[in-house]
Design a protein around this nucleic acid. Structure first.
Lengths: 152, 152
DNA sequence: ACTTTTATCAGGAATTGTTCCTATTACATA
DNA sequence: TATGTAATAGGAACAATTCCTGATAAAAGT
């Protein structure tokens, strides 16, 4: 399933390269693979730290530029969360995020009630709505466990 | 109405100072007033730029520190949006934000349907949910107008 | 296969938003 | 009004991200 997604995205990217005259570099492929396989919503630096093991000469800037390229072309999405560094998500299905305010782990979940909800009509006076985003903030099980230990 | 809110918040802050031994400085009062009166969700620098006209010697750091103090004590809230600089809101009522992806203007709106919505039950397996946040992204009327001019 | 063209890269410098450091200032209590 | 100390101004430091430039390597032509 992940393998299928990976292959699909890689061919999407290959096609993109052909149509836009972009070069299909080793770096770009490795970063794309990493983003698809790492479902923990990594930051650019997280991606860099993993990639650099395979491509020791890669620069952080390349990771940033490449992720930006993927983002512009809809291959990954930026998850804007906790006023911290940017995090990325290759899951393009409609879904929501739960964020742990302690460890900053981000987990996907589905919220059909929200997906179905229509925005209030008077919002149209404001302009054109392109997307709606929700995020739950809280403390994840692991962090709760740690805090219970600390304050017995 | 704004005057009443201002007075209420100022007395809340004065009380806070008494209870915590904080000093009621000129700078803190000016920043508090500015945050209450400016409902455009200003950034720390926006606040600084306005304050500096009245207090020419104030430092940006003071603005940051002071807003952080207010935030810790629940006088203002941070609006985390668009992976940009932090923006602040002194409206503590339950409400939501519409963000223009062009001009980054943030507008408040109410969405009762969302307020009433319960989070999915299985989220409890993840941990404790503390808050839920929504945000609509789109293009505001003014920016739409400008874009129509540019591409006739 | 070999060259050439030029997009892309590595590495470091620059930028931006924010926070830290420290000598000085000014609240608040006596 | 004097005094102790929290808070300030200003600049330095920091962290995330982006820019700059000469070197490298895809890919199109030969």
């Amino acid at each position: 399933m992940l393998k299928a997604e990976l292959d699909k995205k890689i061919s999407t990217f290959e096609e993109l390269c052909r149509s836009k005259g972009l070069r299909l570099t080793h770096q770009r492929l490795e970063i794309l693979k990493e983003l698809i396989q790492d479902t923990s919503h990594p930051s650019a630096e997280d991606v860099y730290r993993r990639i650099v093991k395979r491509l020791p000469m890669i620069s952080l800037d390349t990771v940033y530029r490449t992720i930006a390229l993927f983002e512009e072309n809809g291959l990954v999405k930026r998850v804007e969360v906790l006023d911290d560094k940017s995090r990325y998500d290759s899951n393009l299905e409609e879904h929501q995020h739960m964020v742990c305010v302690r460890c900053k782990r981000i987990e996907d979940f589905n919220w059909q009630g929200f997906d179905k909800l229509r925005v209030p009509g008077n919002v149209r006076n404001w302009g054109t709505v392109m997307s709606k985003h929700v995020e739950l903030r809280g403390i994840c099980k692991e962090c709760l466990k740690k805090e219970r230990k600390r304050t017995p």
